[in-house]
């Protein structure tokens, strides 16, 4: 099975799993209610928000990873991979921001709060956007690749520091998965969460792989043009 087929399979599986997780939150993992018996619909977004946020960090790692590989080898393919990883990061970061803002409104009654995760995500969004602004401002292809790699590495190191410093400056964000009183997940909720998370990672992989495939075809076309002498 070649990579494109795997990517398509992952896309289908990821779609099925995230959709399944969506229904599971309503019909199975329906554990979360308010003290007065109303169902906490706001909580449902957790099954989408957290998986996509975690996936975004994971994908952003590949921006830095391929950035380092590019600088070591100066092989253009690694720059293409870093660029696409950053594209997927941008998609996931924007989704995380959108779902996060919705949840903040439901849970805290305001659209925005400068608390650690929102702040970090805001900074991360700016860094990812800056990555593309930088790319678009450099004429020479190789120079563009070098600068983008260097910035990707800096940004990837900067993001966790931003996260820990805002957290250190006191958090009001719920820490669901880190344990602590009343924060654990019951089995149906945990399983739903895992299904959503696996689905999201598959989607991430599929997006990445399919964009890469597209980009490689473009590059091959360009190479052909050069050989033909166009």
């Amino acid at each position: 099975m070649n990579r494109t087929k795997i990517a398509r399979l992952m896309l289908a599986l990821g779609g099925v799993l995230t959709t399944a997780a969506f229904f599971m939150t309503f019909f199975w993992a329906n554990a979360s209610t308010f003290p007065d018996g109303r169902i906490d619909f706001g909580q449902k977004i957790f099954y989408f928000h957290v998986p996509v946020a975690e996936a975004s960090f994971l994908v952003f790692f590949f921006t830095a990873f391929y950035g380092v590989k590019f600088l070591m080898t100066k092989d253009r393919r690694f720059d293409t991979r870093a660029k696409i990883a950053t594209e997927v990061t941008l998609l996931f970061v924007l989704l995380t921001m959108a779902t996060g803002i919705l949840w903040t409104k439901v849970a805290w009654g305001v659209w925005w709060l400068w608390e650690p995760r929102l702040t970090t995500y805001f900074i991360l969004t700016l860094l990812v956007i800056a990555y593309f602004v930088l790319r678009n401002s450099v004429e020479d292809e190789e120079r563009r690749a070098v600068y983008a790699s260097a910035f990707g590495i800096l940004a990837f190191i900067d993001a966790p520091i931003s996260f820990f410093i805002t957290r250190w400056a006191e958090s009001v964000h719920p820490v669901v998965l880190a344990g602590g009183e009343g924060s654990g997940l019951e089995t149906p909720m945990l399983i739903t969460f895992i299904v959503a998370q696996v689905g999201m990672l598959m989607l991430g992989y599929a997006f990445y792989e399919m964009r890469l495939h597209e980009e490689e075809i473009k590059e091959r076309l360009e190479a052909l043009k050069v050989t033909v002498g166009g």
Partner: peptide, 12 residues
């Protein structure tokens, strides 16, 4: 655009 977001932790 590239500098200010990177400086966030330091400024904080």
């Amino acid at each position: 655009v590239v500098f200010v977001p990177l400086m966030y932790p330091l400024l904080r």
